[in-house]
Design a binder for these strands. Structure first.
Lengths: 110, 110
DNA sequence: TTAGAATATTCCTGCAAACGAATATTATAT
DNA sequence: ATATAATATTCGTTTGCAGGAATATTCTAA
């Protein structure tokens, strides 16, 4: 979980993940599309790989990276425990009650 | 998005968010339950607040922090674009095809 | 107004991470 | 074996946090 969030918290890495969503890519292509130096891409891919967010498949001279969905699924599960907070609309009710209280305390709106 | 991920990538802050999932809390209570110094909690809350992940409501001497679900909803929406990758099982098919290729290339299975 | 509780901010230090440049590694082709 | 392409790693530098300690702020109560 933490490794996943840490990996995704870096803008370039997030971008790489979004790029790989459309299919596997070799390192060079990623570097080209993101306008990054190849070494930086390799380093970012290493972090993503350590976090389990990408997998590699060697192909001749190149290494094809592809997205691994497991960590994203875990993130999804984690989010699920919060989902009812906005689906059940309990927060909207709370906001509404606060709004009422605010209006009664200060009749002059904003 | 990036602010959200950056904020959640810190273990203590993630813990605070999980704590606030069960309801609003004043700073002191958070510090107690997480065994953290109050100043550190205030600083983490500042980051969470800047990211829109928490809101504050002053109450007398104290400041009650509560979870804001908007950023988590955005994260949910972002995840949604990846969800079909594991729901449609295209990746499993890909794994299966790779497995076949691996076996035919090396008959002696590891 | 003064004392005290709850919270926020500042200053400092240490550390981890990102970048650029250079170099090393791995694989292919001749 | 050598040259070359693709990728990975290392090194040095810089920057951005996170933590601790101290201090400042804000609010309440008398």
């Amino acid at each position: 979980m933490n490794a996943t969030l840490t990996a995704l918290a870096e803008p370039h890495r997030l971008h790489i993940v979004e790029l790989l969503r459309h299919g596997p890519l070799p390192v060079g292509d990623i570097a080209d599309r993101l306008h990054l130096q190849q070494p930086q891409v390799s380093k970012h891919l290493r972090v993503l790989h350590d976090a389990g967010l990408v997998g590699v498949q060697p192909a001749a001279n190149r290494r094809i990276y592809k997205l691994e969905t497991r960590p994203l699924q875990e993130l999804d599960v984690w989010l699920d425990s919060f989902r009812r907070l906005w689906e059940n609309r309990f927060d909207q009710l709370e906001d509404y009650l606060q709004e009422l209280q605010r209006k009664s305390a200060e009749p002059n709106g904003d």
